[in-house]
Design a protein around this nucleic acid. Structure first.
Lengths: 322, 322
DNA sequence: TTGTATGCGTTATCAT
DNA sequence: ATGATAACGCATACAA
């Protein structure tokens, strides 16, 4: 039974604590309370601007809720040792990596998904890519390229599917550009951009799977004297600082990663403090941050009909800029 | 006295531990050992690509040394509660903020400084800026602008001084561009770039205090049809991903922030495990990452100076590469 | 070699 | 309303 404590006593205690500069030892408290008030954040890529954006929100929200944040690039280090009360995992619950998390560990996943996954705060990259593709189609583009980079990354498939859906729905011609073993995304974008121009397919718009590829493509286009968006429009993905670094600045699909991170903290803490075992999952909308890298296709004469017949002369004109 | 333990016993114990899936409780260990094997990382700006680059190294090094990493944007949260064994502070030891750290807290600072400060892993932004300035002077530039952004940030002064030293030493004309209350560095760079062009002072090279300002300046230059580096050369600072995002890619002063972070972890752990109270401080060299945003001033007719007469023919030859 | 007691700093319980 | 005491899970020192 909890007894009320007199005002005077409270003051006295606080006074003494202040004078002695007493700070309760968090470790001892954690031991007896079985609560560390610490949450773990796992991520494979800390250098990614996308991650940095999220980290800021997660740290701020965790702090606001009275929790500390330990960051790690290795799962084993933070789980199973009573070091953290729960973890936020920047990976899909369906990722093989997630199998290494015991069912006793409270965890919230933050990742892209095309469906609501339990204990997962997500957004839909399929939808985001669809939005990008649809936007280009609605601007009037009839020959569109997608820069996907390497084949490996699983996230690519969602994006590829969304993009394809928009292309099919619009009934336009499209072409996908990939390459193997990408070590440098910007350079990959540059190489693919050059290949795209060399192919002379009369492409008037490009969708890039991420801002790195988009930025690389911008290099290729500008180097060949192709004007953005006049000659070719371009959409990036993730809306990182990179999208603001080119001129013109890039229209880019914005993923709600910051908000997702903050929500993940909220849900995790809720699970921790209210004993909620699972939550149904949250799907956050993606959006398109429209900047200056897209316009309707300006070479009206290039476009004869839906099938898009390109005149040789115009192509040459287009290449003169270099 | 330590007694040797038989091989058989060790195996037996390990076997049992494995079978029972025993994982020692880190909190209880921390309590009795008075060691949490956790270090704190304090930083004000987690979104900065500069920070992201450092985080990766700090986390990796800490993990490699058997330590965990808690990240916080607030100092008070991580110190004085026995939560961490020591902290790495991304600020100068001379920063007012550093006064809030008790002398009982093991701390290593990571920050720019023009002198070796105790318990501080640093690099010299004065030197870095000098290198950038000197590089431009040696390329033959005689009218150089510096983009400093806002007046407030203290780090600016080191950079300003280094730049000025190079200008004075080279005996060239220079001009500094600042603005007040910067909210968006890229935009500030853009605004300052436009102002610079409007001033029509015959500037042939620009030094920017950071990559954000540089990227903004690139926008302004390209928008006004000024060719980089043909008409104006440009040097950024920090060598972040932004420096690789423009075309041409930016020559940028590289600060050894990753290495500094790793070293900070090493020194901190050393202090923790060997009881080293202080270390004299480490000064790491800055360098210049040379890309394609700088060249000798190409407007030969503009430059009467005998130190740098460029022939028109050479200019044309040199431009072919682009 | 192996078992056992004590303490780490706090919270929670019980008795006063 | 307050003081004493037992856990929390582990490491260590000491006894067996």
């Amino acid at each position: 039974m909890v007894m009320p404590i007199s005002e005077a006593t409270i003051r006295r205690i606080k006074q003494a604590a202040e004078e002695l500069e007493y700070r309760p030892n968090a470790v001892a408290r954690a031991l007896v309370q079985r609560r560390t008030y610490t949450i773990g954040l796992f991520s494979r890529e800390m250098t990614d601007p996308h991650f940095a954006q999220m980290l800021e929100y997660v740290e701020a929200k965790a702090r606001a809720m009275g929790y500390h944040l330990v960051v790690s690039g290795e799962l084993e280090g933070i789980i199973g040792h009573g070091r953290v009360d729960g973890i936020i995992v920047l990976a899909s619950p369906e990722d093989p990596l997630s199998r290494r998390i015991g069912h006793d560990t409270k965890v919230v996943y933050v990742w892209s998904s095309n469906q609501q996954l339990p204990n997962c705060v997500s957004w839909n990259d399929e939808e985001g890519s669809y939005q990008a593709g649809k936007y280009l189609v609605e601007l009037g583009h009839r020959r569109i390229a997608a820069l996907f980079g390497d084949y490996e990354e699983s996230v690519r498939y969602d994006k590829a599917e969304g993009f394809r859906r928009a292309m099919k729905e619009g009934g336009v011609y499209w072409r996908e550009y990939c390459c193997e073993a990408v070590t440098d995304m910007i350079d990959a974008g540059y190489q693919l951009g050059k290949r795209l121009l060399a192919d002379r397919e009369g492409i008037t718009a490009i969708f890039a799977r991420n801002d790195f590829l988009a930025v690389g493509a911008v290099k290729a286009l500008q180097q060949m004297g192709v004007a953005i968006p006049h000659d070719i429009s371009l959409v990036g993905y993730a809306d990182t600082i990179l999208a603001r670094s080119t001129s013109p600045e890039l229209t880019s699909v914005r993923t709600p990663i910051g908000q997702a991170g903050a929500l993940a903290v909220e849900r995790l803490v809720e699970a921790l403090e209210k004993g909620v075992a699972h939550f149904p999952g949250i799907m956050l909308p993606t959006s398109l941050t429209i900047r200056q890298s897209c316009s309707p296709p300006m070479h009206a004469q290039l476009i004869q009909d839906d099938k898009c017949v390109v005149k040789e002369a115009d192509l040459n004109t287009q290449r003169e800029g270099g």
